[in-house]
Lab assay of single mutants.
Amino acid sequence: MPEGSASLQLAVGDRVVYPNQGVCRVSAIDVKEVAGQKLTFVTMRREEDGAVVMVPEGKVLAIGVRKVASAE
C-alpha cells in the first residue's frame, strides 16, 4: 500500500463487517500476482454460509469493511 494511505490493520482471525455481505472472518492475507503486478489481498470467509470474498488490501476501507465492535 502506498505510504501515507489510510488502511485498516487486519490480521488473520479478525472478525469484520463487510457491507451487504455480513460478518466475515479474515482467513488469509496473501500477495498474489495479477496482470504482472504483485498485490496484497485480504481473504475473508462469511460466517453465515462460508462464502469466500477476496479484496485488494488497498480497497478495504473504500468498500467500507470495518472491525466488529467489541462488547466493551
Rank of each mutant, 00 (worst) to 15 (best):
G50Q: 05
K67Y: 13
D14H: 02
V65S: 03
I63F: 12
V17F: 15
Q9E: 10
A11G: 06
A51Q: 10
Q9L: 09
P2N: 12
S27Y: 13
S7I: 13
N20F: 08
R15E: 05
K59V: 15
Y18P: 01
I63R: 04
A51T: 10
Y18L: 09
V42Q: 00
V23S: 03
V12C: 00
V31T: 12
V65E: 04
I63T: 08
V42S: 00
G36C: 00
K32D: 03
G4A: 13
I63Y: 10
I29E: 00
A69F: 09
D49G: 04
G58H: 15
Q37T: 10
A51S: 10
V60E: 03
V34E: 06
V52D: 05
V17G: 03
L8Y: 08
V52K: 06
P56V: 05
V42M: 03
A11W: 06
K67T: 06
S27D: 14
E48G: 08
E33M: 11
R25H: 06
V16K: 00
R46D: 02
C24P: 00
A62Y: 06
P56S: 07
V34P: 01
G58E: 15
G50Y: 03
R46A: 05
G13N: 04
R15Q: 06
S5C: 04
G36W: 02
A6D: 11
G64E: 06
I29T: 01
D14S: 02
I63W: 08
T40C: 00
L61N: 12
Q21R: 12
A71E: 13
P2A: 11
K59S: 13
V60F: 14
T43I: 15
K38M: 12
A71Y: 10
T40I: 10
E33V: 12
V68W: 06
V34M: 07
G36S: 03
K67H: 10
G22L: 04
V31M: 07
V16C: 00
V17D: 08
S27H: 08
G4Y: 07
M1Y: 12
S7D: 12
S7H: 12
S5Y: 11
S70L: 10
S7W: 08
F41H: 03
V68T: 07
V52A: 06
G22D: 04
A69K: 07
F41E: 01
P19G: 10
G4V: 11
V53W: 15
M1G: 12
Q21D: 04
L39I: 15
R15T: 09
V26Q: 01
D49F: 03
N20P: 10
N20T: 12
G36Q: 02
Q21F: 15
E57D: 05
G50V: 02
R45N: 08
G22E: 04
M1L: 11
V68K: 05
V52Q: 07
M44H: 00
V31A: 05
S27M: 13
L8K: 06
Q9W: 09
V68C: 15
G64K: 05
D49T: 06
M54R: 09
K67I: 15
A69L: 11
G58I: 10
M1W: 09
M54Q: 09
K59R: 08
A62C: 06
D49Y: 03
G58Q: 11
G36T: 03
E48A: 13
V17A: 06
T40F: 06
G64T: 06
Q9V: 11
K38C: 02
Y18H: 12
D30C: 08
P56T: 07
C24H: 09
V52W: 08
A28F: 06
I29M: 04
G64A: 06
C24Q: 00
L10K: 00
V34C: 02
V12N: 01
Q9R: 12
Q9M: 09
R45Y: 14
R25I: 14
N20A: 08
L39W: 06
D30L: 12
V68E: 09
L61P: 05
R15C: 00
V17M: 13
K38F: 13
G64C: 08
R66P: 07
V52L: 14
G13H: 03
V23K: 03
D14R: 00
V53A: 04
G64L: 09
T43H: 07
D14F: 02
S27P: 00
A51F: 15
I63A: 13
G13S: 01
V52G: 03
R46P: 02
G13W: 02
E33Y: 10
R46K: 05
E57S: 15
A71M: 10
V60D: 04
Y18C: 06
G36N: 05
Q9C: 03
L39N: 04
E47S: 02
E48V: 13
L8E: 08
S7K: 10
P19Y: 07
P2S: 12
S5R: 03
R15W: 14
S70I: 09
V60R: 02
C24W: 15
R66G: 08
R15G: 03
V55S: 03
G64V: 07
G50K: 02
V34D: 05
K67V: 15
P2Q: 11
S5N: 13
R15L: 14
S27W: 14
V60G: 04
V16W: 03
S7T: 12
A6N: 13
E33P: 03
L61A: 13
T40R: 14
T43A: 04
V17L: 14
V42N: 00
M54P: 02
V65M: 08
D30E: 14
V42P: 00
F41G: 00
A28P: 01
A28M: 07
K32F: 14
V55E: 06
R46V: 04
S7N: 11
V34R: 05
V26Y: 01
R25M: 12
L61S: 09
I29W: 02
R66D: 12
E3M: 11
G50M: 04
E3R: 02
C24Y: 15
R46I: 03
Q21T: 07
R66Y: 15
V52C: 02
V55I: 13
G50P: 01
R66L: 15
K38H: 09
A6I: 11
G22A: 04
R25T: 11
V34L: 07
A28K: 08
V42C: 00
A71L: 10
Y18G: 04
V31N: 04
A6C: 04
K32G: 05
P56E: 15
L8I: 09
M1Q: 12
